[in-house]
Structures are given as structure tokens and as C-alpha cells.
Write a protein that binds this DNA or RNA. Structure first.
Length: 310
DNA sequence: TACCAGGTGGAGT
DNA sequence: ACTCCACATGGT
């Protein structure tokens, strides 16, 4: 299991040819890394051959950078057609992120302008709604590397094999599968106190087969209200699920990094998360969640230490 | 070794 | 409504 297992599994599998990711901008390696491994998704792993290996739903994808920063992908041989369709959704290749980014108030916000310039091409992923909920239920006071480890343990121990890959890859468990797990089994996946939330949420969702699909389809305020009713889901997790798992770019999650960056760069030190969320919506507008991702990435790159350079 | 991590919920003011 | 704190556990 773990990274070594994935490497050998990836090597043993018969892969498709590499092909360009249509409709995706040229990026450098750091931007690609920030996009797939910067805290939106938790199932992408850097490989020793400088490719990325990622999974969502029953999709398995390799990514690499080709000439001139063009992103190329491959998948298990035979899955090319359905993977191409899934990639378009996942990476939002039909969405106009250049226009979205240009619509942010960077012209009157010099810090935002600096963030956009630092991560050209960064965008918001569109992940499966239920898997996004699981990932962010695991995220409370955990580092990204640990959240990734939890996802791998959950998939390895409780997820079904990905069809067409032998036993090389496993999906994340469905909510129905999670509902069948004991809390001890969940805790054994390093979930800690999150195990109870995940177990209770799983039983709630498993008893309501249409609940997730209906919630994903609702307008942002109603969808958020429903998510907030789940144990372990508060304002921040609900907004992450809607931003990264439902394409709601107005969702503005306030985590510890956004708390820091708004305090340091916008002179809002001491403001509470609810106030900051309101500031975010008012200042950044209907695409506040997209702005949030640039601020988050910039602060994690430059703000590790406590310096406050204005 | 301390402190921190893409927080939440419940108890006590 | 606001504040404080327990909750598990590995990274840095």
C-alpha cells in the first residue's frame, strides 16, 4: 500500500498513450502541483518519474507536463473515451477561468494582483460531490499530507477495486460502504475524532439515497444549509465541499490560512471567521471562492513565517 | 519538545 | 451571541 504500491501498480498496468489535455492552459510544474495537490483534492501523488497519479470516482489518471507547459494525460488502456469526458468536467476545461480570473477585483486590490501573477493558470477543480464531502470531513485540524494518508487508507481498506485495473487501484468507499463500517474500523484509518462524524454522516446519507444528488443541485444557500445539518460539517467544510465539489465559485471557505492572510494583507487582524467570510463575499464578489484559492496558495508559499511585509 | 494542522460542537458565560 | 476547550494524531 502507500506510494510504493502505487508506483509498482502504475508500472504494471497497461496505459494509454499520452495525449494533450484539451482546453487547458499552459502551466508550469508548480502551478500543476498547486492545482492537484494544493488542498483542493487529496488523491494526487507525485511519482518518481515526475508525473502525477490521481484518482476520483472510478477514474485513474496520470498527468505530466509536455512541451511548452502543455498538460498531457493517460489512463488505463481501454478507458480513454470515458476518461476524456471525466477530465473535461474535473478540470473544468469548458469553463472560462481566464475570464473568471480577470473578473476578480485585482485592478483595485494590489495584493490580489500579486497572488494572481504568482499562480497564473490556477483554477478550481470540479470533483465528485460525495468524495469531496468525505475529504473535507477528514480535514479538520489536519495537514494536507495527513488528509491524503486518510483517503488512501479508506480506499485501500473499504473501497471497491477500480474496474479494469485488476486489483491495482481502489476507489474511495461510497457513503453506503462507509455506513457499514464500525467506528473502530474508521478510527483505524487514522481518522481520530473525525471517525464519529464520518460514521454518523454515512448513516444519514445511506438512509437517504437521493440526498447528495439533490443537495448538489440546489442553489448555494439551500445546499449549504443542508450540508450544515451534517455532523462534522460547519461553515468552512460546507464551503469547501460546494466550491471544490459543486462548482459554486461564490463559496468562500475561511480556514486558518485565509484567517492569517486577511489579517496580515488586508489589515483585518482580530476579525472573526464569520466577519471575514462576509468581507470576502463583499470584497471579492460572486467569484470569491476563486480569489480565495489564490490567496490561500500565496500565503502558503510566502507566509510560512510570521513576517508581515505590509 | 513544543506547536500546528484547509474545524466543529458543546458547555459555560 | 460570544468564548473557551476537548477532540486524535502526525508533521515540522
Amino acid at each position: 500500500m502507500g506510494k510504493a504500491g502505487e508506483v509498482s501498480a502504475a508500472a504494471a498496468l497497461r496505459w494509454s498513450e499520452w495525449q494533450p489535455l484539451a482546453g487547458y492552459p499552459a502551466v508550469d510544474a508548480a502551478i500543476l502541483a498547486e492545482t492537484v495537490d494544493g488542498g483542493q483534492a487529496f488523491r494526487w501523488h507525485a511519482q518518481p518519474d515526475a508525473t502525477w497519479l490521481g484518482q476520483w470516482s472510478d477514474h485513474v489518471v496520470g498527468l505530466r507536463l509536455g512541451a511548452a507547459g502543455r498538460v498531457e494525460w493517460r489512463c488505463p488502456a481501454g478507458a480513454e473515451t470515458r476518461t476524456a469526458a471525466a477530465l473535461a468536467i474535473y478540470f473544468g476545461t469548458d469553463a472560462d477561468f481566464p475570464a473568471h480570473t480577470d473578473a476578480l477585483p485585482w485592478r483595485t486590490d494590489s495584493h490580489l494582483a500579486r497572488c494572481l501573477a504568482d499562480f497564473p493558470g490556477l483554477r478550481i477543480l470540479r470533483q465528485p460531490f460525495g468524495e469531496t464531502l468525505l475529504g473535507f470531513l477528514c480535514s479538520a485540524t489536519k495537514q494536507i499530507v495527513q488528509i491524503k494518508q486518510m483517503q488512501e487508507l479508506l480506499a485501500a481498506r473499504h473501497g471497491a477495486p477500480v474496474p479494469g485495473t485488476g486489483d491495482a487501484f481502489r476507489r474511495l468507499p461510497t457513503w453506503t460502504e462507509l455506513a457499514a463500517c464500525s467506528e473502530a474500523e474508521l478510527r483505524a484509518c487514522q481518522l481520530g475524532f473525525r471517525a464519529r462524524y464520518i460514521g454518523e454522516t454515512a448513516r444519514f446519507i445511506a438512509a437517504r439515497p437521493d440526498w447528495l444528488r439533490e443537495t448538489e443541485a440546489l442553489p448555494y444557500p439551500e445546499a449549504k444549509d443542508r450540508l450544515l445539518g451534517l455532523p462534522g460539517v460547519g461553515e468552512k467544510v460546507a464551503d469547501c465541499v460546494l466550491l471544490f465539489g459543486a462548482g459554486r465559485l461564490e463559496a468562500f471557505p475561511v480556514d486558518v490560512w485565509i484567517l492569517k492572510t486577511l489579517g496580515r494583507r488586508y489589515a483585518l487582524d482580530g476579525w472573526k471567521p464569520p466577519q471575514l467570510a462576509q468581507f470576502g463575499r463583499a470584497h471579492f464578489g460572486p467569484l470569491a471562492g476563486l480569489a480565495q484559492q489564490f490567496l490561500f496558495a500565496w500565503e502558503r508559499r510566502h507566509g510560512r513565517t510570521d513576517q508581515v511585509d505590509r
